[in-house]
Amino acid sequence: MKEKRSFGDFLSSFTGLAITLLLSFGLVVVLMLILSKTPGKTIYAFFIGPFTNAYYLGNMLNVAVPLVFTGLGMAVAFKSSVFNLGGEGQTYAGGLATTIVCLALPATNGILGGLLALIAAMVCGGAIAGLSGYFKMKWNADEMISSFLLSSAVILIVNYFITGPLDDPNNNMLASLPLGGQYGLLQIFRPSKLNVSALFAIAMAVIVFFFMNRSHIGYEMRMCGLNREFSRYGGINVRLYLVLPMILSGALHGIGGGLMVLGTYHVLYEGFSFGMGWNGIAVALIAKNNPLGVLPAALLFAYLDAGAKAAMLNGDVTFEIASIAQSFIFYFVTAQALYGIARKRRRAA
């Protein structure tokens, strides 16, 4: 009985998602019909463009990688009923930590150096987010607000490093000195930028899934997320679970930023990760905070991004059309009423 019902739920939430996507994509088509002078070409580029060659396809998958990490970071926090609004700064700081470590190390062992750099990114992101968790635990200061403010300050401080001490005088763009070639992650789908970090992303989603659903700590975190007061009576150290989810969330964001630098850019560009934190929130919510669901949700976002790039190159609309398309999906994806329609239809059938 139980299994049947959960399959039914799955079906209706799947139909609901399909309605959401059809509605959102329909609105994108309408928008392009209005904005574009050659709508047929632009619409084709937007929807089909990302699949037309290996370069586009690989880059699309590569864009999904950091979104998996930021999405997982948000899912861990949301599952524990902790709000991390500082993902932007934590991801950006992860990139900075990675760059500093790679630039500081003597150029010998790329793999060991890369690993140290990622650990630095993890610690850096975790510490920034953990601070907000600590303020919450210690003095009940709203972590949502403090994480956002800290992140805003951190972004400016990272900018300072890029334009100040790490600045590359030979690069016209706002960027740090390039990382040594030995740190580049293995490309796995040339000529695109897709690299082994995609495999790390999949592995991380599986690890986080098992951690949240099968481990003792994961269980206590979820219990605190469901009902903190009840968990306290149950003997769970609830104060710990104000800080720990924030640290884990920040650490995941940090790794995401670090991998972007190591795998894709090999240099720290100003603003390289902007949008990853906010989109991570959406990815997590679309995935209903399920770590495995984060994978397809991140792909969906990468697809919109790739579609908008293709539409810009082959059509006559600007890239910002991607933000509008994303906003349509945001608007409808959690709309319970749309899922209700799906549920009713199924019952009637």
């Binding site: 959406a282 994303q326 906003s327 709309a335």
Partner: peptide, 27 residues
């Protein structure tokens, strides 16, 4: 309207509104 009448998550529709405004004004 979307948040209240379609019963969507207020957090994510808020993000949507920010994204929409940012994209729409530039486009």
């Amino acid at each position: 309207a979307i948040t209240i009448y379609l019963r969507a998550n207020v957090f994510i529709t808020g993000l949507a509104t920010n994204l929409f405004a940012s994209g729409f004004t530039i486009v």
